[in-house]
């Protein structure tokens, strides 16, 4: 009977795992990415408003919807920020 060795795989450190897989985005990167998306939506809203005032764009509803999109994503960003700040404060209050 052949006894095979138990292969548990790399247990030491994160380096072998990290090198095998695609480096996963850090929390900070994700945050930066979503803030960038909010900025993009706001830029789009700005552009649409400018176009409307220059009478290039005749569709007022498209402008309004761009503004709403930017507004909603901004609200979401603020909520995420509030959560992060409250989590940070929670950690800072921790008794050592």
């Amino acid at each position: 009977m052949k006894i095979e060795s138990i292969n548990i795989g790399p247990l030491t450190g994160n380096a072998p795992l990290g090198s095998a897989k695609k480096p996963s985005a850090s929390f900070g990167d994700i945050l930066k990415d979503s803030i960038q998306k909010v900025t993009d939506l706001e830029k789009d809203a700005n552009l649409q408003t400018e176009k409307l005032t220059r009478m290039e764009n005749q569709d007022i509803h498209n402008t309004m919807i761009s503004i709403e999109k930017a507004d909603l994503s901004y609200h979401l960003m603020m909520q995420v920020r509030n959560k992060i700040i409250s989590a940070y404060e929670e950690v800072m209050r921790m008794q050592v």
Binding site: N62, I65, E68, K69, L72, S73
Partner: peptide, 17 residues
């Protein structure tokens, strides 16, 4: 997504216009 619903609404508004 929620933003896609807005896009659908925008397309309908365009069509009605």
């Amino acid at each position: 997504g929620i933003l896609n619903i807005l896009r659908v609404g925008a397309s309908a508004l365009n069509a009605q216009r």
